[in-house]
Design a protein around this nucleic acid. Sequence first.
DNA 1: CGACAGGTTGACCGTTATCAAAGATCGTGG
DNA 2: CCACGATCTTTGATAACGGTCAACCTGTCG
Lengths: 237, 237
Amino acid sequence: MRHSDSGCSAHHHSCAAAGSVQACVSIVPIFNHLEPVQLEQIMETVQSATYKKGETIYRAGEKSDSLYIVHKGSVKIYRLSASGKEHMVSLLHPGDFTGEYALFSESIHESYGEALEETQMCIIQRDDIHAFLEKYPAISLKILQEFSQKLERSEKQTAYFATEKVETRIALYLVELADKLSSGKTVVLPMSRKDLAAYLGTTPETISRKIADLEAQGLLKQLSKKKLEILDVDGLL
Amino acid sequence: MRHSDSGCSAHHHSCAAAGSVQACVSIVPIFNHLEPVQLEQIMETVQSATYKKGETIYRAGEKSDSLYIVHKGSVKIYRLSASGKEHMVSLLHPGDFTGEYALFSESIHESYGEALEETQMCIIQRDDIHAFLEKYPAISLKILQEFSQKLERSEKQTAYFATEKVETRIALYLVELADKLSSGKTVVLPMSRKDLAAYLGTTPETISRKIADLEAQGLLKQLSKKKLEILDVDGLL
DNA sequence: CGACAGGTTGACCGTTATCAAAGATCGTGG
DNA sequence: CCACGATCTTTGATAACGGTCAACCTGTCG
C-alpha cells in the first residue's frame, strides 16, 4: 500500500485509495508482466487525480511530462486543426494510457485530453519512469512492442483516411467495433454522433445518413440511437 | 571490416563492400550514438542487398523479420486498400529505415517496399537486434524516443487527412518540403504526380489542378514539372 | 522524327459538407 | 410524474469539392 498518494495535492484533485491505484497500474499492458517487487516500486511513484465530466485533463501547448493511465471513466483525446476542426485521436477506457510521447523526450502536448464522464486517472512522472527503465531495462522491450503495434495501427488508420470514402470508413469502424466487443452481432456505439464524426473525419449529419443507407441496404438494423445490430458483416466490407 | 557479407547469398543480390555497409549503419539515427565497439558488433550482423529500379523489396503478407536500412537510392513504402487503391506511407532516402514493427514481435508486412531507382539496402535480422538490445539495453531508450516521435508524426498525418481538404494537404506538404530542404524558396518535388497523389490521398489530375490554382493565386510559381518556387508561405497556410 | 510515358485540361458526375428546420431524447425542476 | 428546455439526432435542399474519363499537351529517348 505505501504512500501512493504523495504529491497528489499538486493536482488539486482528490486522491484514490492506494488499493485502487494498484489495480489501475496492474491492468496496463505495459506493466502487467512485472514482478511484484517492480510493481511495488512503480506504485510508490504513482499519483492519482479525478476529473469531472467535461473537464480538461491537458491542453495542446502544455508541457508534457507524465504518463496518464485511465483508472475509471473514459477520456477523449483530440486534436484541433489550424482551421479549428476537431479530430478525435482516440477514446480511452480503463487500462488505456496517453502521454507516452513525453516519456522519452522533452515535449509539449499536441492534443487535448478531456474526461467524458467522472474519471479517475493514475499519473506517473517521466523522471520516475526513466529511473525505472534504467533500473529494469528489459521493460523497454515490452514498451517497444506496444509502441510498434500502435504505430502500425496508426499507419493503417491514415491509409483508411487516404483511400476510403466516408461510407467505407463507417462500415469498417462498425465491423471493428463488433469484433472488439465480440458481443454477437449487436454493437453499442461508445460515443455521440458528433464525437464519432470527429473520429471518422466527417460530420454528424453524414453519419446519420450513411447508417440509414446501410440499414436500407439491409446490412444492419438500428435498435436505438446507440445500439446497432450487424446483419451482414461481409456486405459491410 | 570483418565478414560483413556473410549470409548475403541468401538474398540473391550482390553484396556491398564492407566499408560502405559501415557508412550505412552509422548514419541511421538509432545507431549514430553508439560506441565504436557496439557499432563493430552490429556491423558483423549486417547483410546487404541491391535492388533494381521498380524491384519489390517486400510484399504485404510476407513474414517480417528484419530491419531494412536504405544505404543508396530510394524506396517507396505503400499500402494497398481492399479496393485496390494505393496509399504511399513514406519515401525512404539513405539513412531511413523500415521494418521496425517486426523487431519486437512476430509479424507480417502490411505494406509493400519498392525500389524507385538502383538501390542498396542494409539488412539486420530481428534476432541479431534482439541479442544486441539485450546486451546494451540503453539503446532501447533511443529507439523508444525515435518511435514516439514517429508515432506522433503519424497521428498528426492522420489528423490532416481527417480534417483538411486536398488543397490544404498539398499546400502543407509543399511548405513542409520547403522547410526540410531549407533550400531558400525553391522546392524540388521528389516524386511523380502519381506517387504524390498516392501519398496525399488524391489523384494526379487534382494535384495538377490545385498546383495550377495556387499559382493563379500567386502563392507559388512552377519553374518546371518538378521544380516550384514558393512565393508566399503564409498564404499557403 | 515518331512513339511513349507522364502531365495537364476539360466536361461531367458522385460524394459529402453546409445550412436550416423538424424531431427525438434526456435531465431538471416544478 | 410530468413538463420544459437544452441538447442531440435526423431529414431536406443545396452547393462545393474532388474523382473519373477522355482528349490533348510536353518532354524524352530511341
